[in-house]
Every structure is written in C-alpha cells, then in structure tokens.
Design a protein around this nucleic acid. Structure first.
Lengths: 248, 248
DNA sequence: CCAAAAGTGTTTACAGTACACCCATGT
DNA sequence: ACATGGGTGTACTGTAAACACTTTTGG
C-alpha cells in the first residue's frame, strides 16, 4: 500500500505507473428449490456492451462512499427481495484483460471484481423484473455460457458452498425458522448430491451436536408419519462454535 | 460489473457516482524459525505519510498491466530473497475510510487492499535491507501496533495459516527437500501450539497417508537416536488430493 | 551408564457406515 | 391394508488419544 511513496525514495524511479481501477462486485447467489430438488443460481441478462445479450452473474460497480459488502447487498436487493440470506466475500479477480472495456476506454482503466457468495431462501425470494432486463434462476447443470470470467467465479462459488455446508451452519440461514430434519436433509442432498450420508446417520449426528431444539410440534405433509419440528438454537451453537464440527 | 450501463437504462439516473480506486496488495508473510521455535511475521517500517514511522505489512500498489498475484510476488521479492514459498490470496479489504489518503487527496480516490498470505522457508530467506527502510521478522506475540487495518489483516492471515496446516500440505513448501519427522512435527507445534497432537500419533497418521518417502538415509543431530530422512512425494500426493485428508 | 531423541506398539473410547426394523399417518 | 415417510437401534469398522515401551545415539 505504499508503492507511490517508495518511488520517492529513489530505487524505483523507473517503475511502471500505477493502474487506476473501477471495482466491481459480482455475486454468486444460490438457492435451493426443495420442491423440485434443484440447486439454483441467479443469472441476469446483459443488455449493454460488452457481452450484450449474454447471461452473467448479477453485479455492479462500487460507488463513492460504498463498502464492498454494501455494494454486494445492493446488487442483491436490486434483483431479489429476500429476508433471510447468508453472504460472504468469495475471491477477488483482478488480472489485466479480464474485461474488454479495459481496451476500449484506452484510459488504462482496469476492472477488478470482488466476487461474493450468497445463499438465499428460495421460497421467499421474489425476483425483481424491471421490464427490461432478464433475470432467472438456473439449475446449476443448465447454466449457459457466461460473460467475462463468470464461469470461473461460479465454479469457485459452488466449491465454497459445498465446503461451507460441511462445517458451518449456513443451512439454517436459509431454512424456515421451524423445519423438519427431513427438510434439512433434503437441502444437503440437493447441494451435495445423493449418497453424501445416510439419512439416519445424518439425523443422529446433527441431533447429537445439541443445537437443534425440538419445538414439540409436529407437521404432517401427505402420507407418512408426522415429523417433529425443530428450531436452530443460535445460543447453544455459539457455545460450541470454537470446537471443530462436522455436519457432513 | 455493469452499474455504469444500468444507469443508462433509466431507473438509476440519480445514483451516486462510481468510486475510483487505487488497488494495493498487502502480504502477510509467515516463516517458522525452527531453531528458536518461533512463528514469525515480516514487517516493514513506513517512512512516509500516512502512518510514518509505523510498522506495517509489506505492500505495494498495483501497476498498469500487473496482475494481483504478480504484485504480491513483486512485494515479496523486493523484501526478501527466497526460493521456496507458498502464496495465496487472503481477503480484500475495501471499506471507505480505511486509508487516510482518501481524505487528503480529495479526488475521492479510494484505496483498496487485496491481502495475500505467504509462508516462506526461514533458513534461506534473506531480508533485503535497502539502507533506508527497516524490515524485520517479528514473533507473532510481539507484533507492535500496525498501520492501517493491518492488525485485522494479520489476524485473518494467522487463522488461514492454522487452517491450511490442518488440511493441506503447505508445510512441505517450506521444509527442506529432505527432512525428519521431528522437523515436520516441530513446525506444526510452533504454529499450532503444544498439545495439538501427540508426536507418535502425528507420526503414525502422516506415514499412513503414504506420500512421505523414506530416503533410507539418517541424520544425527547431537544426542539421541538418528532420525530417518523423508522426502515429500508430490506425485503420490496428487493421487490422494481429492480425498479429504487431515494432518491435524 | 545415563540422558536424549527416534521409533513402535497397545489399550480405550468414541465416531462413521450400513443396515434392519419399528412407528404413525393418508388413502 | 399398505404405502410412505419419520424415527430408533445395533453391529462392524476405523481412527483419535493417551501412554508405555524399545532402540540408538552422544557424553
């Protein structure tokens, strides 16, 4: 963070000039459609150059006075209305020539992308169609060719999603407050694929962790025995969070 | 990545103007002094405003045509000569007001920092003293107050170091080609603290993984039984890398 | 011979896997 | 009654944790 100052000190007088950047934020927004057992990514259609007519991850350029995280939340809220979500920074892509505008502008401006990863509750997510721009949930297997380096960003985000599910409680940010263990299991299966674990073992492991509170209520959904409804006990979880924990 | 274009579409005409950025790279560079059993971080003394006279992480601003990773390697090579190292991107800090220059300049330029994390081989690391700037290895426990938000960056890097040691083979990037299991164990103890594991259990676990090749040679260092010398077999490791693996 | 470091083995406890089986509901 | 999903239990296997013990060196 002090290359400019170093050049004053002498030995770097012939250094290349500094790059000027616009900083973008691109979001990999996942949701799980538990009715159809599908993992979905939110994509938007571009209506301007570059990559006009191409699908891309929802993104924006960071404004004056706006933090990276604020920008990430802004993109999200411009595209969908949602109350429950998990969001974190993913990775920063900043190589030269990753954005065609760098050549056109010829001002030497670089475009850098700080990607973010989000998981939202599908049931309550309401897409904001602004009449012009296309916006849609895509099943992961059917994602079309994406603009920029967004295919790479998406792959990175998918990896992070799978890892996060294994050792952190993000699933509960996206489940209803009250849920059955079947709901939870189905979410894991949809993301990680069948055969990541037996249901009864999954069940036993999760319950033994001790932060799932049985509400005492039950729900009946069609045929089959009614399922107990559980609540995620954030306080109980806090006490255990320093200890390594596997949800597998 | 298309906020500018969106504004043309109408509903965002009154949006805030975009921020212009300089992008910096700050490195958290660790090494392990196995003689004195100390975990060290590389710090440099600042000789210009802001934070003049304050210690900071080694960093620089990204130049035209330079990738983030290139910039990270450049900072590193300007400060130390080293042949073996591990380096990866850590996190991007980009909030407004994280750099005092943002106010002085009054051009509205923002300073963003893409932090990187590195682990280098201590024995061969040769600090480059340019006569003016101070540069030194600091034991983690004795790190002074740092410039900018570098204390936060350092804390983040330390966490990453501990995690990486547990499930990836970065230790071998920083050990000599030929080493004893005692060397390896000592590195882990120095970073993770005593009591992360018993030596004999650590030993059994690592050997069972199957990518440590016994060279057949032995070394004698003072009193005690001579130790077998091992080599990290990168090919054998590649075959197993997709399977989850714990070095603990 | 003794201390120091390397290396081996054993015991115990618990965690993951793969099932088999019982339970409560809708149709 | 039976299909369907919820829920419980068990036997097998493997691995982590603690620790006792043997081996080979220097002094």
């Amino acid at each position: 963070m002090h290359g400019k100052l170093q050049r004053k000190t002498g030995h770097l007088l012939n250094a290349e000039p500094l790059a000027d950047f616009k900083v973008g934020v691109d979001n990999v927004i996942f949701s799980v459609d538990t009715d159809q057992n599908r993992l979905l990514v939110l994509l938007v259609m571009r209506h301007d150059a570059p990559y006009c007519g191409c699908w891309s991850l929802p993104g924006t350029l960071v404004r004056q006075g706006e933090s990276l995280e604020d920008a990430a939340y802004r993109v999200l809220s411009e595209k969908i209305r949602v109350n429950n979500l998990y969001l974190e920074q993913l990775y920063t892509f900043g190589g030269p020539d990753r954005d065609p505008r760098e050549e056109e502008d010829s001002y030497g401006v670089r475009y850098l992308s700080v990607s973010h990863f989000a998981l939202v509750r599908f049931a309550e997510a309401e897409l904001i169609a602004d009449g012009v721009s296309g916006i849609a949930w895509y099943p992961l297997a059917q994602v079309p060719t994406l603009a920029f380096d967004h295919a790479e960003v998406l792959a990175y985000g998918y990896q992070r999603l799978k890892n996060k599910l294994e050792y952190s409680p993000i699933a509960f940010d996206v489940l209803p407050d009250i849920f059955t263990l079947g709901d939870l299991y189905q979410l894991y299966v949809t993301v990680l694929g069948e055969g990541f674990s037996d249901y009864s073992n999954f069940r036993a492991r999760l319950l033994k962790l001790g932060f799932l509170e049985d509400t005492g209520n039950k729900t009946s959904r069609g045929a089959g025995r009614p399922a107990s409804l559980y609540r995620f006990d954030a306080d109980a979880f806090e006490l255990l969070k320093d200890k390594p924990m596997v949800f597998i």
